[in-house]
Design a protein around this nucleic acid. Structure first.
Length: 409
DNA sequence: CCTCCACCGGAACTTACGGAGT
DNA sequence: ACTCCGTAAGTTCCGGTGGAGG
């Protein structure tokens, strides 16, 4: 193997940036990241205890009941489940028990039956190609692995609603029935969702099986959020860098937004990062205010950049059209002009209708169905975000560059 | 009270693609 | 080399619909 050559550095951008970022503010910003599982979860002791009791049979090699967990975003569902399952594994390891496995699947990322199954198989140490096989084949391999290992598998399906919305409850149905087909192993499910009406869309058989045990996580109030933030901040920040009131401010914002702890932690982290970039010695309330905008902007840019081509076009049309269209018909006409102007074949109105729904789902646009009686039924489309941010996000897209070069705007 | 607009939105199908098994 | 498979994006077809205007 070749060794990397060490390059002589003068005013190296990377080094000076790192130097600057090796922080007067943070001890560990990881602690504030959304996927970090803390060692203590304030105000969730009851849930932790309850969940542990439900899972406990696994220690004796029995199958825990299926559990369904519901709660708004940022109420600690994922954190609690991860925390408990981690600890259960640790406990088992300590006792020398090796008949249990835990699988965690985020169905927002693995949003197809195939991919979710792949993930489950992987947790049993079975590698499955990411494409090429039939779902039935993957399912078979998964089952064989379970039989071979004879394990009790706890499969955590986070944000299950995404999977079900796209692919139906087929996988859930098969997973709830799998135990009767298995000789060696057992499977129990933990489904997590923040969609209240999720279970309504389920096959009754799946519903009753998945909901053997149901848990509801209620939102945090401002005081609880403050406790959580204090706890994390003490680990994340250097002592004394948080100005008075910063934590309260973050907590109050998040409390207003249905007690979303993830939101509160994001605010705190980004505020810290802004302070750091400014070389400030303290994180102030102003930094938190700026963090709000930055988070919003990043979210917009992120979404805008990952949209499929025609999605971008539609969004751009909305942005350029003043952020509001009274009917999808108007929108479609403008869209078609723009597409033709770019030399691209426009997609059908039906497709644009779906694109609007997708944008709506992403929260970047609000589409309300409106009945104009004699004058038909349509959707009114309103942009929810700053058009300039969007336009900025699109500017460095090679395929769209033409619009900004030649045209009015 | 009925009609009929301008769409909505479900469902089945197509095409292009990357990849596995045999 | 050939067949089968899943995914993503899009198309085709079509039944459905709330309410202003007659």
């Amino acid at each position: 193997m070749k060794r990397l050559e060490v390059v002589e550095l003068g005013e190296d951008i990377v080094f000076s940036t790192l130097e600057r970022l090796s922080s007067d503010i943070f001890v560990s910003r990881e602690v504030l990241r959304p996927d970090y599982v803390p060692e203590s979860l304030p105000h969730r002791e009851r849930e932790i205890k309850a969940l542990t009791e439900h899972i406990a049979p696994i220690i004796r090699g029995e199958r825990p009941s299926n559990i369904f967990i519901y709660g708004l975003t940022g109420t600690g569902k994922t954190a609690v489940v991860k925390y408990v399952t981690n600890r259960v594994s640790q406990f088992a390891a300590k006792k020398g028990l090796n008949h249990l496995s835990i699988a965690y699947v985020n169905c927002r990322h693995e949003d197809t039956t195939y991919r979710a199954l792949t993930e489950l198989a992987l947790s049993l140490g079975v590698k499955v190609p990411f494409t090429g096989l039939s779902t039935a084949e993957v399912f078979k391999r998964f089952k064989e692995a379970l039989n071979r290992a004879g394990n009790v598998l706890v499969a955590v399906l986070d944000e299950v609603d995404f999977l079900v919305k796209k692919n139906g409850d087929d996988l859930l149905y098969r997973l709830t029935r799998i135990n009767s087909e298995l000789r060696g192993g057992k499977v129990s499910l933990i489904g997590i969702t923040n969609d209240v009406r999720f279970t309504e869309t389920l096959d009754p058989r799946v519903k009753s099986s998945l909901g053997e045990v149901e848990m509801v996580f209620s939102p945090y109030d401002a005081d609880q959020l403050r406790d959580i933030l204090m706890e994390r901040a003490s680990r994340a920040f250097k002592p004394g860098v948080l100005e008075d009131g910063v934590i309260d401010y973050c907590a109050s914002i998040a409390a207003r937004e249905h007690g979303d702890a993830r939101r509160a932690l994001d605010l705190l982290r980004v505020a810290g990062e802004i302070a750091e970039r400014e070389n400030a010695k303290k994180v102030t309330v102003r930094h938190v205010k700026e963090a709000r905008y930055e988070i919003e902007r990043n979210m917009i840019i992120d979404v805008a950049k990952t949209l499929p081509f025609h999605g971008k076009l539609v969004l751009l049309v909305i942005a350029l059209g003043g952020g509001k269209f009274n009917s999808t018909g108007d929108l479609y006409i403008k869209y078609r002009e723009l597409a033709r102007g770019l030399g691209a074949e426009p997609v059908t109105q039906r497709r644009v209708s779906d694109i609007i729904s997708e944008l709506d789902m992403l929260g970047i646009v609000t589409a309300r169905v409106i009945n104009r009686g004699r004058y038909g039924k349509t959707r009114e489309v309103v942009l929810n975000v700053d058009p300039n941010t969007l336009i900025k996000a699109f500017k460095d897209d090679a395929r769209l560059a033409w619009i900004f070069k030649n045209d009015r705007y």
